[in-house]
Write a protein that binds this DNA or RNA. Structure first.
Lengths: 240, 240
DNA sequence: CGAGGGGTTGATGGTTGTCAAGGGCTGTGG
DNA sequence: CCACAGCCCTTGACAACCATCAACCCCTCG
């Protein structure tokens, strides 16, 4: 059930069998959330966190006038709202972009982990810090990169992150989102997202059709997005 | 020495005298970093974290071609690179924008905290999650707000954050940065930053001269930036 | 006195946004 | 079975925000 979660953790740090047992014992329920549904609403007080088991979820901030910004994507294996353990309520929505399955972990179980398993606590603390790294990279994209560069960078990021949990086949992976949602991730309009996609296809770099990303030229994609995966902390430099 | 740090922590959660003593005992050295100097360089392995005692510091990501993006500002009292405790090396630079004084905290002392002080561990975990909240708000600004809105929002954020540690006098506070740096925070060019500043001054909203921000009309400033401080978690909803 | 950083201004151009319309597909109900 | 709504994608014309380039001023400092 939480195999992908363990894959993600172990891509960065060893998890002992005992710790694995602790994690497994911490999970309480399984929750299905259909596509386009808000899983956790901004400001709502909650007493559990959720591990994404399957599907694509996202964090989204909304403005009163309808403008919205996705701030991070989540793939299977991610602890989508682990930060709610210390925040108690969120500053943003967690939304399901496709049909999603979650495992719930009561905050009381997380509290127990912080009291009895220091290493596992640091592993999870690292997890939320990794989210912050992704946020920073998105800030760089939104603030300093062109539409084309942002899009290429996003496709690279998802290629790597989905690869970690075994969800990439060759140069192809599922990304079940619409062009409107893609635009709200990249900080551009849907019209411009559409034109940028066409341009990338014409150049033979990548295609995005029907919720499937097909990378035609990985090197060109990386170069276009100036993609350097070091912010994902996968090089085994051993963060501890 | 770390009074502002304690002010910041206590603005969100009670810190017991015992915990205060633990924090004080964890500090090792004091470090001076002159303006425009990199305090912690991207990728550099470090075994201590730093609390900012005075000055303005920032996190910055650089691209090969010279483009750069500040991803967060830091004020006195902030644990500027607490995340290096779990990350071990950073994905970005920590730079001093003005002359800065830091207190250093060895990671070994932080490790001890995670092993013996679960509540304090959660307080610090909360601290890094708060940084992530600020990142998300900046993502929203960079992706969805106009130059004018971004600038107003930033001035509001600094007004609140500096206010927490007692560094606001009426509607005035020090923000010793150049227009070039301001531009690199807002994802615009220095020329455009300059023109946006002039527009705000003409409208009687805010002035920024010589590294000093003078708010002329706080309500107008908040409205221009659509500023809602809830992402700073200060309302005493008690995250516990 | 010259160099250099910070700020300011003008002219021009380009990336991106806005507005509007239409095509293809799916699901639903008459 | 067809009409229709609705979503997603696509295209064209035009406008706006912001970038680029260049020049100049002021101040400080060596």
């Amino acid at each position: 059930m939480i195999e992908k979660h363990l894959m993600k953790l172990r891509a960065r740090d060893p998890i002992s069998p005992e710790e694995e047992a602790v994690i497994r014992a911490s999970v309480k329920n399984v929750l299905n959330v259909p596509a386009d549904r808000v899983a956790v609403r901004e400001g709502q007080e909650i007493d559990f966190s959720m591990i994404l088991l399957s599907g694509i979820a996202a964090r989204r901030k909304d403005m009163r006038d309808g403008r919205r910004q996705y701030t991070e994507l989540h793939v299977a294996g991610d602890f989508t709202d682990l930060h709610s353990f210390t925040l108690k309520y969120l500053d943003h929505d967690i939304v399901a972009l496709s049909n999603c399955t979650f495992a719930t972990v009561p905050h009381s179980n997380l509290q127990k982990i912080t009291e009895e398993y220091p290493h596992l606590t640091r592993v999870y603390w690292f997890g939320t810090n990794l989210d912050a790294c992704i946020h920073r990279e998105w800030e760089l994209s939104l603030g300093s990169r062109s539409a084309m560069e942002r899009m290429a960078h996003l496709f690279c990021e998802m290629y790597v992150r989905l690869g970690v949990v075994g969800l990439v086949n060759g140069g192809t992976y599922d990304l079940p989102i619409s062009q409107v949602e893609l635009a709200d991730m990249l900080g551009i309009t849907p019209v411009h997202a559409n034109r940028t996609l066409q341009q990338m296809r014409k150049q033979g770099i990548v295609e995005f059709v029907g919720g499937v990303v097909t990378i035609k030229d990985l090197e060109a994609l990386k170069q276009t997005g100036e993609f350097d995966p070091s912010y994902l902390y996968l090089e085994g430099r051993g963060y501890r």
